[in-house]
Amino acid sequence: MNNKLKLMGLIPFFLLMVFVLPTSAAYKFTNPRIVLPVRSKGLDADSRSYAVVFDAGSTGSRVHVFCFDQNFDLLPVGNDTDFEFFAQVRPGLSAYAKDPQAAANSLFPLLNEAESVVPEEFSPKTPVKLGATAGLRLLEGDSAERILEAVRDLLSHGSLEYEADDVSILSGSQEGYYMWIAINYMVGNLGKPYSETAAVIDQGGGSVQMAYAISRENAEKAPTVADGEDPYVEKFLLRGAEYYVYVHSYLSYGLLASRAEILKVSRNSSNECVATGYNGVYKYGGKEYKASSSPTGTSFKKMQNTSS
């Protein structure tokens, strides 16, 4: 198996792993320092490989650049301390539901940043992948596909190795079980019995994912699903251990999407969930929702009734 195929096999894992790395909302571009184990240093150029991953989330778009040695352990990117290059822009692609070209253009500065990090001689053989999440899954009609097509066109004119299938929307289950793998990898649980692994709850902008390992016996009791639907349990073989991971994604329960759902209930009237004195418009997924406080003020009790 060549390096291209090996790297592309690793990218989905790193795509979800990047969700748990620290980010900063204070800057348009950030490059946080993280500490990950590295066993190989001082390698010549032929021993390195690069990969570029775009995480197109509901709240923003991020790009990550990774460098690997021959064993696909992480190496420093650009200096002796940073093991990942990271940059982000806000808002996310779903904010441009009615303007696919603007959505693609929002990624242009990230692509430029990534291309400047990857050495020129590596660019033609450095794969780039973009995974979009619930923000695009929630868009109506063909809006999501039109955005993806515009993004594909942008990447096709770049210097990195790209194929059309490398731009896609992740399913809710993919978000959940890759997050489970990422968390348990980072805390050193992979290879241990399933009962010693961590459960994961991930709240994004558009959805919430829940994932945890269960016994084989319980996995066999999982209900069947209709064709085309995500299964309740996924089986993995990781570091010599067999895992059955229950995963479920709750669409519209993310931080941003849930606000829109609550405002839908009020049907353009006042809402007890809105802070006292506020009167404005909330935009999400290409739609606008009136957001105004109730004349009687904010009420936690009434807010619970509304959200339920």
Rank of each mutant, 00 (worst) to 15 (best):
I181C: 13
G254F: 06
E217A: 15
V77L: 02
S123R: 13
L15I: 07
L93P: 01
L148C: 01
M1L: 11
L263K: 12
D166Y: 06
G57C: 10
A222Q: 04
L154S: 03
E288L: 08
V274L: 11
K264Q: 10
E115L: 08
S270W: 13
K264S: 05
D202V: 05
Y278M: 08
I34H: 01
L43E: 10
Y96C: 03
S215Q: 00
P127Y: 02
N279Y: 06
S307V: 07
A257R: 10
L93N: 00
P223G: 07
Y50E: 02
P124V: 02
T298M: 15
L15V: 08
L75E: 00
E121N: 07
V118G: 04
S266D: 07
Y289K: 09
L170Y: 04
G188L: 02
I11V: 11
K301D: 05
T197V: 10
K302C: 01
R267M: 15
P22G: 13
A257E: 11
K221W: 03
I147W: 10
G254Q: 07
L16Y: 09
S207E: 00
L190P: 00
S270L: 02
T30G: 06
A45H: 07
L21E: 11
R62F: 09
G135L: 05
C67V: 12
S249K: 02
D165Y: 14
V20E: 14
L75K: 03
E196Y: 06
V18Q: 12
W180A: 08
D142P: 00
P119H: 02
R39K: 15
Y178T: 08
I201E: 04
E229C: 09
E113K: 14
F19L: 12
I34K: 03
N218Q: 11
F83A: 08
A26D: 09
R33S: 15
A114T: 10
V225R: 10
I181G: 07
L160S: 03
E242S: 15
A241Y: 03
T133F: 05
S308W: 13
G176E: 15
V117M: 09
A56H: 04
V20G: 12
D153L: 12
A95M: 04
E261G: 08
E161A: 14
I147L: 14
A26M: 00
L107Q: 03
A198W: 11
E234N: 08
A275T: 04
V18Y: 06
A219E: 01
N31K: 07
Y185E: 14
L110A: 05
S269M: 15
C67D: 06
C67F: 05
G204L: 10
K290I: 08
Q70G: 01
V18A: 15
P223T: 10
M179A: 10
P109G: 04
N268W: 11
G204D: 04
A150D: 03
L74Y: 10
S156N: 08
G172S: 09
V265G: 03
H248K: 12
L238C: 09
A150P: 02
D82V: 10
K192N: 11
N218V: 07
L263M: 08
T126S: 00
A219P: 00
V265H: 13
G240H: 06
G254M: 09
I214R: 04
A25G: 15
H64T: 14
Y250N: 07
E272V: 15
Y194N: 09
L138I: 04
E163W: 13
P193K: 00
